[in-house]
């Protein structure tokens, strides 16, 4: 079922274009990663999705409700952390959750349940000002899933979490996506972490979406393209038109599976010994950098 639909979303402040032509849709159970450097437009896009910033053009629909026209109906199904888990520091974690719960028909047992889920049982009655960033992230996540939203949007939720916390959060998100059929958007700079639990990614750069694809699609593309060779000499300009020298014995090049045989033949004919040929498995980070490079060239 279609949960979120962004169509030609456009945001301009003065003459500066912040987000341009953002279009994608999200179904139940999808986990979409937003990737991009600072200022790429990820947070602005998220803010437009939850009504914190206005749209200069395009439309955002959540369960068919337009975020501008039917804000309350649209946002009722959304749980979100935007930028930071900004909670009331002078209140306890529990009081913050009670405030969040008061907007929905939520009883105390559900509050206890999410507190257990994020592992804050022992500290929930302490003031938030005494929490670490990681604890505040956990509390923010608890507050955002309290009302069983169908769309969960988390802006940099891994910030401040220790490896154990990251693993726990990944488990929670995977469970919410698979068991509760929750659609999730996660933005992060820790690209390698997104790779392990996102099934789709949107790569942002300077307000544009450079790539919007499933993880499998991206991996398929990259798996076909990049090969790593261990060679006797890396001075191959006369033989190869394009390659990357990694160190004095290794080069990297892009090629189709069919063409790699021809390349090997050419190297051997020119007395370059090839000791090892390895198809490189690219991570999300590599794809991101590659896409970014391409965008700069563009």
């Amino acid at each position: 079922m279609l949960v979120l639909e962004c169509r030609n979303v456009f945001k301009k402040i003065g003459h500066h274009v912040i987000v341009s032509d953002l279009s994608f849709s999200l179904n139940e159970g999808d986990i979409l990663g937003f990737i991009g450097p600072n200022g790429a437009g990820k947070t602005t896009s998220i803010k437009m999705m939850v009504g914190l910033q206005s749209l200069s053009g395009g439309s955002i629909k959540i369960f068919g409700y337009d975020i501008r026209k039917d804000f309350t109906k649209a946002i009722r199904q959304v749980g979100a952390i935007v930028e930071n888990p900004d909670m009331y520091m002078y209140l306890t974690g529990y009081e913050n959750l009670k405030i969040a719960a008061s907007f929905y028909q939520i009883d105390a047992s559900r509050i206890d349940e999410v507190v257990r889920m994020v592992g804050l049982e022992g500290r929930i009655h302490e003031k938030v000002k005494n929490y670490s960033l990681g604890m505040r992230q956990r509390l923010g996540i608890a507050a955002s899933i309290l009302h069983h939203p169908k769309l969960l949007i988390l802006d940099e939720p891994l910030n401040g979490l220790d490896p154990e916390g990251i693993r726990e959060l990944k488990d929670i998100l995977l469970r919410l996506a698979h068991e509760d059929k929750m659609a999730i958007i996660v933005s992060s700079h820790i690209l390698s972490e997104l790779e392990s639990f996102c099934n789709r990614v949107c790569i942002f750069s300077r307000g544009h979406v450079l790539k919007n694809a499933t993880i499998e699609e991206i991996k398929k593309i990259t798996e076909k393209e990049v090969y790593q060779l261990e060679v006797s000499s890396t001075k191959l300009d006369s033989i190869l038109s394009s390659y990357l020298v990694i160190d004095e014995a290794h080069i990297e090049l892009s090629s189709t599976k069919e063409n790699i045989v021809n390349i090997l033949k050419a190297l051997l004919l020119n007395d370059v010994l090839v000791y090892e040929v390895k198809k490189k498995v690219l991570g999300l980070e590599d794809v991101f950098l590659k896409v970014m490079e391409a965008s700069h060239d563009f």
């Binding site: 804000f71 309350t72 946002i75 900004d86 009331y88 969040a100």
Partner: peptide, 14 residues
């Protein structure tokens, strides 16, 4: 200033 408006403004209230 503290950003808590975001907490409030993403709730289903106009």
């Amino acid at each position: 200033q503290t950003g808590t408006f975001k907490f409030l403004l993403i709730k289903p209230v106009s």
